[in-house]
Nucleic acid binder design. Structure first.
Lengths: 238, 238
DNA sequence: AACGCTTGGTGATCCAGATCACGCACCGCT
DNA sequence: AGCGGTGCGTGATCTGGATCACCAAGCGTT
């Protein structure tokens, strides 16, 4: 099964901007071949669920095109978004390696495409190719760092303003200019932003107003413009 | 260098209650020998710091005797305790594997003893022994799950009462009786409890009073007695 | 045009928990 | 005994953000 656009894991590696850093880039020839044998590619519409929190792990997904949000919910329906993944990210790795249920729900935020590697094939690869096991260990420890950063944010940064400022900074870290300005397309609703920083939609609305009034940011259509990242950094002192 | 009590990693494995589950238990003979060559053992007094948040990773520590608290602080001095480790736990693993600074501070809560494996030796072991790399990957993914649980608690469980109830349950999960009762020695100050559940000392004091009044728990000297875990579970609905 | 639906803005109210400010008990010390 | 240090209990006060309750704007559908 071959997806449109002619993309697959290896092709993607050649073209992707962070080439070489990804889990499956620059593998030995035999490992690469093996990978191509066991993977399958599929396209997903917006709002498609790659997997759902609590399900037994079927395998890992390598996101090729599109963004996906990872979220957890409590029984009462409160939801937090723990990460927004985009192309190149590996989803479901922890669940597969430790053979526990998926700890998050992965939902496409826009139409996209992902490679799937079934659990058993993946675990066999780990055994057969030490290089893969090593990469996986490193990827897991990166995931851990991300999770830890999240803990710091949730546990230490008290006010919604701080968390909001942090979020804006993380969004604009890639497009930042030397003078501290930056801009980024806003693709989320206020509701989703609220689920990321752990507050309510109303508060997010007010934060947008407040930050605009304080000249920390402005909107040009759907594009968010930051005047000075420095000012934002002063707000989040954790 | 040989520590008192005649304990080392391998000895410990033979006697420790969760034998076989630990990172370095039941390794092949050669891997075990290698481990014994590169490790060194040291004793630590109460309040000793094994390593401090932000330091470059020197190596991993395997806690043999005593408890250690892992914590992170913000610049303003707010501190959260993310985990209380006890014997058998591996500390500093993530930092060493990913070669990033230690993400937490590890401080002994009581006098104890730990084995140390220098960074380079450890990474060589990972390369030379696929079995070790596999174990490490699994350990990392367990760490990740723990971190994720923490995120859920911080992000979803709103009230201090909920978090406090969760904490009590986690403390007593090992000594729980069939009828739901349990007891555990309380070794922390209210201040430390506050740093775990992310609130203030005063609130923790009031929670203790409140839970006692509601017959959820009682103190017998330094021992905490739970009447019914079931009642606590009803409180934390996340 | 009229509708349903999602998303965003904003005022009014309320309350849990942070903060401040004590006093008290306990323990090791000289 | 007297003293300082640490940990605990509790009242009084204050406030940030959740909650509730609307309304308005945009947009696809019929």
């Amino acid at each position: 099964m071959r997806a449109p656009y002619g993309l697959n894991i290896l092709d993607n590696c050649v073209t992707c901007p962070v080439r070489g850093e990804h889990l499956f880039c620059n593998l030995s020839l035999t490992a690469g071949q093996r990978l191509n044998e066991v993977k399958s590619t599929a396209v997903y519409p917006k709002s498609a669920m790659l997997f759902i929190e609590g399900q037994q792990p079927r395998g890992v997904f390598v996101l090729c095109v599109g963004k996906a949000k990872l979220s957890t919910s409590s029984r009462e329906g409160k939801t937090i978004i723990t990460k927004v993944s985009d192309s190149g990210d590996i989803l479901g790795l922890n669940a597969v390696v430790s053979n526990r249920p998926y700890e998050v729900t992965a939902e496409m935020m826009e139409p996209g495409q992902a490679n799937f590697i079934p659990r058993d094939s993946f675990l066999h690869m780990l055994k057969d190719f030490p290089e893969v096991a090593m990469r996986v260990a490193q990827q897991l420890s990166r995931n851990y760092y991300t999770a830890y950063e999240e803990i710091r944010t949730l546990g230490l940064a008290v006010s919604p303003s701080e968390k909001f400022a942090k979020l804006l900074l993380s969004w604009t870290s890639k497009t930042a200019q030397d003078d501290g300005s930056a801009q980024v397309k806003l693709t989320m609703t206020h509701e989703e932003v609220a689920e990321i920083i752990g507050t309510t939609r109303e508060t997010v609305s007010r934060l947008f107003s407040e930050f605009k009034k304080k000249q920390l940011m402005q909107m040009k259509g759907a594009t968010l413009v930051i005047r000075s990242r420095f000012a934002l950094e002063k707000i989040c002192q954790s």
